[in-house]
Design a protein around this nucleic acid. Structure first.
Length: 592
RNA sequence: GGUCCGGUAGCUCAGCUGGAUAGAGCAUCAGCCUUCUAAGCUGAGGGUCAUUGGUUCGAAUCCAAUCCGGAUCACCA
C-alpha cells in the first residue's frame, strides 16, 4: 500500500480515537510537502476545522503528537505552519523500502486481477503508408496495453485493418491507369509507399478532371460527380463487392504489397498485435445484431426500410444503422466487431485508440452497446487523442503533406548517430552494436516526445526543429540509466544487504521518496489510460538521480556502508527506469 | 447553431478530485570536466494561469457568461 494512503488511514484512526468521531480517508488531504518547509508529507488542516470546532493549530498539535507517539516507525517529527501539518517520514521506513525492493525487477507492478481487456490501436488504411499521426496512435496503444498488463490485466492487442472501400479502389484504379505493370520490386520501392504514390496520383488526376469539367461549364459538384476516374473507381467498388475475380486479384496483390511494407515499419517501431481483424471480413458483421435490436424495439425502421436508433434522449441525434437497401454502414460493422471480440475473448473491457475526430462516433457506439446489453457495454473506453499537425495545418495523405513514419524513424536514427559520433564514447562498439544503439536512442527520443504529453491534447510538430536529445527527453533518461550501469559494472554491490544504520542524506531520501511512488504512478497511468503520467515521473526520477550523482560520489562514498546503500539505491533506480521505459516501449542502453 | 475538447513563461508542456511564494524542458545569460559517462550539474532573468463575475477561510484548479482556436453533428470510413 502506498504511503500517502497509509497516512490518510492512520490519521483517520487517530482522530477517531482522539475525538470519538468517525473519519474516512477522504477527509484527509495529503500533499507532498513543499521543499521550503521541513517534512515529506503534509496534511491540510483547514478542512477539519469546521468538523471539530478547534483551531488548525490545536488539531495539528494533537494529531502530530499522537502520530509520532503511536507510529514512531513511520513518523519522526512534525511542524505546523499556517494550518498545514508537515510530517517527517522516518529514514527507517525508506530504508526498509530499499532493502525490500532494490533487487525486485517487478517493483511497482500489480498482481493479476483476473480481468481481460482488449486494446485496439493502429488501424491503418491499406492505401497509404503510415505517418506521424499513426505513430502517436501506435505508441499510445502499445504503451497503454503494457501499462494495463503492469496493472494486472490480461491484455489483448488488436488492430482493425481498413482494407476495403472507395479509398482503396482509388489506388487500384490509379495503378491500372498509370503504372504500366510496375511493382514495388521493379521500382525498388517499399510496398506501402508504392501503393500510397498511386493514391496521390489518383487525386492529382481527379483534380485535373474536375478542373476540366468546370472549364467545360459544369458546376463543381457535377464536375466531381462526372469525373471519369471517379466513375471508374465507383464501378470498381461495385465489382469488388460482387467479387469479380480480376478485381479481387488486383486488390489482393496490392494489399499484399502494403502489408509487406507495414511489416517492416511495425518491426522497426516495435508494434505488435495479438489479433488482426480485416474490415473486408467484418464489414458485413453486425446486421444480425441490428435485426435483433429491431425486434427488441431498441431500433426502428423508417418507411423506406432504413434502420435507425434515436439517441435524442441521450443528447445526440438519430443515427442510421442500416441503409434502405439493407447494406451496413460504418457503425454497423463496429457493433458486429464489438460482439465478435466478446465471443472470441470474453473481454471485460475494451479500449479503442482512435483520434478525437471520432469522439461522436465512439459515443454512439458506447450507447448502442449499452442499449443492446453487450456484457461489457459499460466498459467501452475511447482513448481519444489529439491530432498531430504541422505548423502549416493538418497533414493530408492525398496532398502529400505528411511526415512519413519511415522517413522520421530514419531521420531520428541519423540524428542519434551524429550525437553519438560527436561524443565518441562508444568507439569500441562493433557496427551491429552501433546500429542497435542508434535505434534505441533515436526511437527513444521519438517515442518519448510523442508520449510525454497528455494524449487528448493536439500536438504541433515542426519538422524544421528536430526532436531534442537534451532535457525532458528519452535520451536524457536513457543516459541516466547508462550512467548507473557504468558504475554498477565497476562496483560489486553486496547482493542482499541486511541493514543500513547511518541516517539518510536529503538527496538519498528524496530519491527513495520518489521511488516509493512508482506503484501508485503505474495505477494512475493505467486508470487514466495516460502514459504521460509515467513519462513525467521517469524524467523527474532521472533528474533527481543526476543531481545526486553530481553531489555525492558512489564509489568513493564516506564509508563502505554508505557505498553499499548507494549501490542498492542506484540499482533500484535503474530497475524502475528500465521497467518504466519498457512500458513506454523504449529500450535503455547499457552504454551510450 | 447544438455538442465536445483546448487556451498556464518567448517556444513546448506539467500542475486541474480547491491549499503554502504557479513548476519543468528548450531558448537567453553566468558558472562547473586532473575523481564514478558534461546527452550532465548549479544559478539568474522571464507569468494579468484568455477575460469577467460567482462559490469560500483559500481558486490556475469548481460554477456561469464572454472571447479565441480546434473537432464533430453524412444512407463516407
Amino acid at each position: 500500500m502506498n504511503l500517502s494512503l497509509q497516512i490518510q488511514q492512520i490519521a483517520a484512526e487517530t482522530l477517531e480515537n482522539l475525538y470519538q468521531e468517525s473519519f474516512t480517508v477522504s477527509d484527509f488531504q495529503i500533499n507532498e510537502t513543499k521543499p521550503e518547509f521541513e517534512g515529506n508529507y503534509t496534511i491540510v488542516l483547514f478542512a477539519l476545522v469546521k468538523r471539530l470546532k478547534k483551531s488548525p493549530d490545536a488539531i495539528g498539535q494533537e494529531l502530530g503528537q499522537t502520530l509520532i507517539e503511536k507510529h514512531p516507525e513511520l513518523f519522526t517529527g512534525f511542524n505546523i505552519i499556517k494550518g498545514f501539518l508537515n510530517l517527517t517520514i522516518s529514514d527507517e521506513y525508506y530504508k526498509s523500502i530499499l532493502l525490500r525492493f532494490n533487487n525486485d525487477v517487478c517493483f511497482g507492478k500489480h498482481p493479476m486481477n483476473g480481468k481481460k481487456v482488449m486494446v485496439e490501436y493502429s488501424s491503418p488504411n491499406t492505401n497509404k503508408p503510415l505517418h506521424l499521426g499513426h505513430l502517436r496512435n501506435n505508441f499510445l496503444g502499445w504503451s497503454v496495453a503494457e501499462i494495463l498488463k503492469a496493472n494486472g490485466y490480461e491484455v489483448y492487442k488488436s488492430c482493425i485493418v481498413n482494407d476495403r472501400g472507395i479509398h482503396i479502389c482509388k489506388s487500384m484504379v490509379a495503378w491500372q491507369l498509370f503504372a504500366n505493370g510496375a511493382t514495388p520490386e521493379s521500382t525498388n520501392t517499399k510496398g506501402d509507399h508504392f501503393v500510397g504514390d498511386y493514391y496521390v496520383k489518383f487525386n492529382d488526376a481527379y483534380k485535373k478532371e474536375i478542373a476540366e469539367g468546370i472549364a467545360a461549364g459544369l458546376s463543381e459538384a457535377e464536375a466531381e460527380k462526372n469525373a471519369p476516374i471517379m466513375k471508374l473507381t465507383q464501378q470498381m467498388l461495385v465489382d469488388w463487392e460482387a467479387g469479380k475475380p480480376e478485381v479481387m486479384d488486383l486488390w489482393k496483390k496490392m494489399n499484399a504489397w502494403v502489408y509487406k511494407g507495414f511489416d517492416v515499419t511495425y518491426a522497426s517501431i516495435g508494434s505488435d498485435f495479438d489479433k488482426i481483424y480485416y474490415e473486408s471480413n467484418t464489414y458485413l458483421l453486425g446486421k444480425d445484431t441490428v435485426q435483433k435490436g429491431l425486434e427488441k424495439g431498441i431500433f426502428y425502421k423508417k418507411d423506406d426500410g432504413s434502420v435507425w436508433i434515436d439517441l435524442q434522449p441521450d443528447g445526440l441525434d438519430e443515427k442510421l444503422l442500416l441503409r434502405k437497401d439493407g447494406t451496413s454502414v460504418y457503425i454497423t460493422q463496429d457493433i458486429g466487431l464489438a460482439m465478435q471480440k466478446y465471443e472470441e475473448y470474453k473481454i471485460d473491457k475494451s479500449i479503442y485508440v482512435i483520434g478525437d475526430e471520432q469522439n461522436y462516433h465512439m459515443k454512439v457506439l458506447q450507447l448502442i452497446a449499452q442499449k443492446l446489453g453487450l456484457p461489457y457495454g459499460n466498459d467501452i473506453h475511447h482513448l481519444s487523442y489529439g491530432m498531430v499537425e504541422l505548423p502549416s495545418g493538418k497533414m493530408k495523405s492525398r496532398e502529400g503533406t505528411v511526415v512519413d513514419a519511415d522517413d522520421l524513424v530514419d531521420e531520428m536514427r541519423n540524428t542519434a548517430k551524429q550525437h553519438t559520433e560527436s561524443l565518441g564514447k562508444v568507439k569500441d562498439f562493433n557496427p551491429e552494436e552501433l546500429n542497435q544503439l542508434y535505434s534505441t536512442i533515436g526511437l527513444g527520443a521519438m517515442k518519448f516526445y510523442l508520449l510525454r504529453v497528455d494524449p487528448k491534447k493536439k500536438m504541433i510538430f515542426n519538422p524544421e526543429e528536430s526532436i531534442d536529445f537534451h532535457g525532458f527527453t528519452g535520451p536524457f533518461i536513457q543516459y541516466s540509466y547508462a550512467r548507473i550501469k557504468s558504475i554498477l559494472r565497476k562496483e560489486e554491490p553486496i547482493s542482499t544487504p541486511s541493514s543500513f544504520s547511518s541516517p539518510l542524506l536529503p538527496l538519498e531520501k528524496k530519491l527513495l521518496f520518489e521511488l516509493e511512488q512508482y506503484p501508485q504512478i503505474l495505477s494512475t497511468a493505467g486508470n487514466a489510460l495516460d502514459p504521460s503520467v509515467l513519462a513525467n515521473f521517469l524524467f523527474q526520477l532521472a533528474k533527481s538521480f543526476n543531481a545526486f550523482y553530481a553531489e555525492h560520489s558512489i564509489s568513493n562514498a564516506e564509508n563502505e556502508e554508505k557505498k553499499q546503500l548507494r549501490l542498492a539505491l542506484i540499482g533500484m533506480i535503474a530497475n524502475v527506469i528500465q521497467s518504466g521505459m519498457q512500458l513506454l516501449g523504449i529500450r535503455v542502453p547499457e552504454r551510450m
